[in-house]
């Protein structure tokens, strides 16, 4: 109702909503762990069976959470970047954020497709398997596997940039960008009577 009245636009929030923040930090841990599990299972002599058993359910969990997060991002207002952020930095931030969404969804799907193309079941837990999403095919396997591997390194590079930029905002600019994801609004109670 309120949103329909042009004379009282909803104030832009100062922080991401609670669901968004919980998803962000939970997935931050999950995705970072996932990337290390991924390269670890391709190198470790002793841990591969254990790591690949983790890689599959964790990948599917990230896929589900990423879709939920995308919906939350599209349906809920997000805090704008402060006016002090130069236009090119804002553009880079937006582009990298949407690229992160793309990777969070594409990488698990690629992994699932890699397993399918190679006729490997995706095993979530003992006896729980997902159906194949692409036909068994060596050409498909080769391309999908390459894309999955390159995508993982791209995502890692993107995350390093994301972490670096977030910390610059937190420790050098101190402009509220970091705290908009790190914590909720502390002034919410005082604002309530205005509504």
């Amino acid at each position: 109702m309120m949103h329909d009245l042009p004379e009282t636009p909803a104030p832009a929030p100062g922080h991401f909503n609670l669901l968004g923040r919980v998803l962000h930090w939970a997935m931050a841990i999950g995705i970072m762990a996932m990337l290390f599990i991924g390269v670890g299972m391709m190198s470790s002599l002793s841990l591969r069976p254990w790591l690949i058993d983790l890689h599959q359910p964790l990948g599917i969990a990230i896929l589900v959470l990423a879709l939920l997060r995308l919906a939350n991002r599209l349906l809920r207002a997000v805090p704008p970047l402060p006016a002090s952020v130069p236009r090119w930095q804002a553009a880079a931030a937006h582009a990298s954020h949407w690229l992160l969404y793309l990777m969070m969804i594409a990488l698990p799907l690629l992994g699932w497709a890699v397993r399918s193309a190679g006729n490997w079941p995706v095993i979530l837990m003992d006896g729980w398997m997902l159906p194949a999403i692409v036909p068994e095919n060596p050409v498909l396997y080769a391309w999908l596997r390459l894309a999955h591997g390159i995508g993982a390194w791209l995502l890692f590079a993107l995350l390093l940039g994301h972490i670096g930029a977030a910390l610059v905002h937190a420790w050098i600019f101190r402009d509220g960008v970091f705290s908009s994801m790190a914590r909720g609004s502390r002034t919410r109670v005082s604002r309530l009577p205005d509504n």
Binding site: M41, M42, L45, S46, R48, P49
Partner: peptide, 8 residues
């Protein structure tokens, strides 16, 4: 340990 190594 040899079983695990074979997988990779």
């Amino acid at each position: 340990p040899v079983l695990a190594a074979r997988a990779g």
